[in-house]
Design a protein around this nucleic acid. Structure first.
Lengths: 232, 232
DNA sequence: CAACGAACTTGAACACGTTCAAGAAGGGCG
DNA sequence: CGCCCTTCTTGAACGTGTTCAAGTTCGTTG
């Protein structure tokens, strides 16, 4: 009984239909309340009450209030992927594909801006399983990195051969930077984030192109060495 | 009485000697306990008890548990400045000065690594006054940016004239990136962060030098345009 | 010196996230 | 049907950050 049998994370799905139904009910209620009132002002008691279950029941399915967020991640990632599809189908130029995918990501997140801002801190904590760098997040992270691999693969961009395998992850990192900026973006409709994307994408595009240039060869090499060092 | 007269932030110093003494006592106790037990496991009750005051008294001086952290920032900044002085006195080359200052920053933070990791999340929250981008943090931020201005001013580096005024802030941003990496760095003694600094500094040095190069002129221009756009 | 008021201090009380021992539901098996 | 075991559900209770009405201290002023 000391063993943890309950599916406290998204990893373990409830084995029965009854469980799955309750789990979804709690999750939907939580997401709705988060969007309505924000993360901090949504209490676990309120979630339980609105869902018509006991407080402890929510903890049977989700290890903590924070774990509910991980579910939000997963959903957002799926929506991002879906929203990016038309762009990937339509565009063939690297810059257009990258801009489209970045904008799609922000599109998906926009309705949750206020709520995202308040939960973002949890994601930033290194010890938290919610950190995008954590082991628990490796599945969604991989999915996200894969998305940027598609951006690159489907494009006509010519990239330095050594740089290419690392580029998807670097693009994902850049996306994390955009999200970080977006979370802090207080401009109406987060228009500044849109400008950041539109300004940064041609820059990245140009840099990627220049990576094959002779003068920059040593720099490219230096960057790759650093990446390799930091990855062990 | 509904008006907030208490100095809940570092901005308002207690007007009397008695107040100042109590404030320092609470602060010192809190810092000690944070280092000993970590942030999360240090309760406000424990701080108050160890300091020999009532819980509410701590809240008279510090608006919240998080506000105690802001004080930690201020102290760390001062220590960073002091630790960087010898480097600034000794070195004249840009790369050496930058590396020295970055290492000095990590030196100062190292004893607090565990504790820093747990409080970092608070800093990441956009709505929090603790965010390094917030208005409340503008004083320490300016001090930090000034430090990097010194790194540049005292150096023999030749920098693109347009880029130069923006460079201190960009270097500070890079430093924030290093700190972000450091916080997540689980390697023993955070050696990977040291390698990151040693690897990234020559890179930055080279890029700064290349900024004056003809081929890169458009890129430099593009970066500067973007920065200006994002700053309104 | 006595009265006043600002500065400071107190600790009980509140709301919230979380835990856990106890029980209910449901279904497989003899 | 009766038994048993897993799955699921409950809600009281705990520890925490935070608030606040009430009290104390102490320099200033008439």
């Amino acid at each position: 009984m000391t063993e943890q049998t309950a599916p406290t994370t998204a990893a373990g799905e409830p084995p029965t239909a009854r469980g799955e139904q309750t789990r979804q009910l709690i999750l939907d209620t939580a997401m709705r309340l988060f969007q309505e009132r924000g993360y901090a002002r949504t209490t676990m008691r309120a979630i339980a009450q609105e869902a018509g279950v006991a407080v402890g029941n929510a903890y049977y399915y989700f290890g903590s209030k924070d774990h509910l967020i991980q579910e939000f991640y997963a959903r957002a990632q799926l929506q991002h992927r879906a929203a990016a599809q038309p762009v990937l189908d339509r565009e063939s130029e690297f810059a257009a594909r990258l801009a489209g995918v970045l904008h799609a990501g922000i599109d998906v997140l926009t309705p949750s801006h206020d709520f995202a801002a308040s939960f973002f801190k949890t994601a930033a904590e290194p010890t938290s399983p919610l950190s995008p760098f954590s082991a628990e997040s490796s599945a969604p992270r991989r999915a996200a990195v894969d998305l940027f691999a598609e951006v690159l693969d489907g494009s006509t961009a010519r990239v330095d051969a050594e740089l290419r395998p690392h580029l998807p992850e670097l693009l994902w990192l850049a996306y994390m930077g955009v999200v970080l900026y977006w979370v802090h973006d207080r401009s109406p409709q987060q228009t500044k984030t849109r400008r950041l994307i539109d300004g940064a994408v041609p820059l990245v595009d140009r840099l990627v192109g220049l990576s094959r240039l002779r003068v920059l060869r040593p720099v490219t090499r230096q960057v790759l060495d650093l990446i390799r060092t930091l990855r062990h």
